[in-house]
Amino acid sequence: MKIAFSPCPNDTFIFHAWVHGLISGAPKLEVTYADIDITNGMAESPNGPDVLKISYAALPWVLSEYALLPCGGALGRGCGPLVLTKSSISEPVMPAMLAGKRVAVPSERSTAYLLFRLWAAQNVPGGLGEVIIMPFHKIMPAVRDGEVDAGLVIHEARFTYPEYGLGLLTDLGSWWEADTNLPIPLGAIIARRSLDLEAISGWIRASLEYAWKHPDESQGYVLHHAQEMNPEVAKAHIDLYVNKFSANLGEEGYAAIAALLSRASQEGLVPEVDLAKLSLT
């Protein structure tokens, strides 16, 4: 069975047992490791993998061929993207000041981008100006150097942006959670509708349960793919993103996904989704 997921610790932690043949009855996996912007595109290919991790923002484009699985993905709290500007105590930047301005974002098909556009629709009268797609590592320097007026950042930028002399305009995760009282839908696990979806979900859950019961067994595999990440940071990453929603989306998880995609559809950011297609039942 062909599968594609990111080299991030949460994914390698969840799938370690299955990848290494530790799940009884599960087929052998042929794994492609790729960042989520790559797997988003793979899901739209006629030769895409059987199972893969994508952003929830990309889900509306692939639901005809793929089904959302109720486990293995990433939803969470306290882990949202940030909107950054040049820091100035004397001249604080208010959201309305982004009207007509240039903003750099790392991807258009990401939860981060959807959250940003939904936030802007509420908080930036007149709307944004030019939205520029830019490699993630170039965004903070571009804001610092005045190439753009603001930048949307994710991941470790939550901790490093002060080093660039930047200030926090808004934490989109905090905004979303306050506005909806729901977690942030980040990464989804999907599988081709022609496959045995219940069986695949069972193998994923078994792999996750194994990881939770034997957390040290996966460490070498996790750190190998995380490259320069130290063990403490990798563990913190896993603790944040591998949670109850990874085992079962549940009512709250599905509500968060429906809220994100419904709002995004109303803003014209994604195609309208038949919410009945989100559940396997």
Rank of each mutant, 00 (worst) to 15 (best):
A17N: 14
H224A: 11
R117Q: 06
A96Q: 03
V131E: 12
C79R: 08
L52R: 00
D145F: 10
W61I: 13
A57G: 11
A43D: 01
M229I: 01
H137W: 01
I3A: 14
P60D: 09
G167M: 04
H224T: 07
K138G: 11
A178L: 07
A211N: 01
W203T: 09
R193H: 14
A74F: 12
E65Y: 13
L118P: 05
E228P: 01
V148G: 03
P95W: 09
G41E: 11
W176Q: 02
R263A: 12
P141L: 07
G167E: 03
Y164C: 08
P27F: 12
T39M: 14
G146P: 11
W119C: 15
Y33D: 02
I257P: 03
A247I: 08
Y33V: 02
Y254W: 09
I89S: 14
Y241P: 07
W176T: 03
S6A: 14
K86H: 06
V51L: 11
A26E: 14
S88G: 15
Q219K: 09
G80T: 04
E232F: 13
G202W: 05
V143Y: 01
S262H: 01
G220D: 13
P27V: 14
L208R: 10
T170Y: 00
V131T: 11
L172T: 13
P9I: 08
V143I: 04
G187S: 05
N40G: 11
V131Y: 03
N123L: 13
M134W: 09
L275G: 03
Y210C: 09
I89A: 14
D11C: 15
G220Y: 02
A150S: 07
N40P: 10
V105W: 01
A99E: 02
I190L: 10
M134F: 09
C71M: 11
G167D: 02
D145P: 09
L22M: 15
Q219Y: 04
L168V: 10
G48E: 07
V233C: 06
S265N: 11
P46M: 00
L82Y: 02
E209S: 12
Y254D: 04
S279N: 12
G21R: 06
P9R: 09
Y56Q: 10
N243V: 08
E217V: 07
Y241V: 06
M1E: 09
G220I: 06
R193S: 15
Q219M: 12
V19C: 07
L75D: 03
E251Y: 03
Y161I: 00
A26M: 14
L197H: 10
L63A: 12
A99M: 06
I14W: 05
G187F: 02
D196Y: 10
L52V: 01
C8W: 08
E65T: 15
G127L: 07
W203Q: 03
R263H: 05
D35K: 06
L197P: 13
F15E: 11
E272P: 15
L261Q: 06
K53P: 03
S87V: 00
I3R: 04
